[in-house]
Design a protein around this nucleic acid. Structure first.
Lengths: 212, 212
DNA sequence: ACATTGGATGAAGGATTCTTCAGGTTTGGA
DNA sequence: TCCAAACCTGAAGAATCCTTCATCCAATGT
């Protein structure tokens, strides 16, 4: 059921002139917009091109097919999220564990919220674009960053469990996803953030005590 | 961007004779299979009919369109999950809170795992089929059941917060989703279940103490 | 046995969509 | 100024898909 995850996903050509850079940016932005306004199943290359103010041909000059376009947008978003979390991890080294968790969770929630529209749009295509694979890759990247950070915690009895970190990450994703898809208000997001911090802190505390 | 969530989703006709019941069952099962083997974007009504061993016309006799078919399968699954959790809630009344949480989490994990293939298949179409709406509805249903159960807990200082329950549910969904999409082994699932219990228990304990 | 309602068929109409390519326009350096 | 490379255009080919409907088979009750 898989194996075609890596077929022709690479961009076809990289923009050289400034004009083309603008074009590619417009195409990516238009992809998000069309996804939000028309849904994943009515996302057509022509519609995206129209919205971007270019012709279809132009789109196919940079992306070999529709999936590669979606994949590129998805990959870009995941990369931004990863970077935000990695920065938070670096900043939180040597702090007490609860403080570490707080920073990581807040960084994650904030970066997702700043680009709420993109996050929501991408949930709609992830399945059709090798989503799980990319999500897994990103998960590993985040886990490494968090693992490294936790190793510098002065108040940890047990070494942090890899599995527990994955658990925490997937719980975070789930909570954010449902908040985003429910169209939560800014006030609601603050509450989600607050509770998600509590959730992760208490789980991590429990997971790094008499375990085995 | 919404408003067409309730268009022609109702089944067209309900099977009367036994023969037709079998047919409808085969169509639903075939839908899952095609989803798993071909992906959401290559799920065609003709392919589903072929796999079910009937003609397309038959399919359209029961479902007015493709989306309504997907919706029906989705709705059926969500109903099964809800029932399993509701039963667990009813059984766990008057038990200590940690025990309650344990039962609910285990019920949820187990029912999802029993139908792992269906769960995975449905993740692929949820976005295109009024998924978020159905998920929200199911979430409310589950929250009510859990809320009622928690009210009978003998060891709870604060009345359980609605928001906290939603939080727990979305964290559970997220964790299960990533485990399912990662193709976790049975052994891995046991570990996920165990940790998810711990996560929910520690969060609930924290959320029902000095809060606000 | 027969009429009526339920159930099944599958070719074909109608509508989209993806992707290409031959040819025109713009840019930037020589 | 002039040219080659970079860009852009958009009509049209090729491939799918969704859905319908006229027609035939099966079941049920009288």
């Amino acid at each position: 059921m898989a194996a075609d995850t890596a077929v022709a996903f690479e961009p076809r050509k990289t923009p050289v002139q400034a004009r083309a850079t603008v074009t590619v940016g417009a195409i990516c932005e238009a992809t998000i917009q069309v996804l939000l306004s028309h849904g994943a199943d009515r996302l057509t290359t022509t519609r995206v091109a129209d919205r971007a103010g270019v012709s279809v041909g132009t789109l196919y000059q940079y992306y070999p097919n529709k999936r590669s376009l979606l994949f590129a947008v998805f990959e870009d978003h995941m990369d931004k999220v990863s970077q935000a979390v990695e920065v938070a991890c670096a900043d939180a080294c040597h702090k007490p564990m609860p403080e570490m968790i707080r920073r990581v969770v807040e960084a994650f929630v904030d970066v997702k919220m700043q680009r709420a529209d993109i996050s929501i749009a991408l949930y709609k295509v992830a399945p059709d674009v090798g989503g799980p694979a990319l999500v897994k890759r990103t998960g590993q990247r985040l886990r490494k960053a968090i693992e490294a950070m936790l190793l510098t915690a002065p108040d940890l009895k047990l070494s942090p469990d890899r599995f527990a970190i994955d658990m925490m990450l997937s719980a975070m994703s789930g909570a954010m996803r449902s908040a985003l898809e429910a169209g939560a208000s800014p006030a609601m997001f603050r509450k989600v953030r607050e509770h998600l911090v509590l959730l992760c802190q208490s789980y991590m505390a429990a997971a790094t005590t008499g375990d085995d």
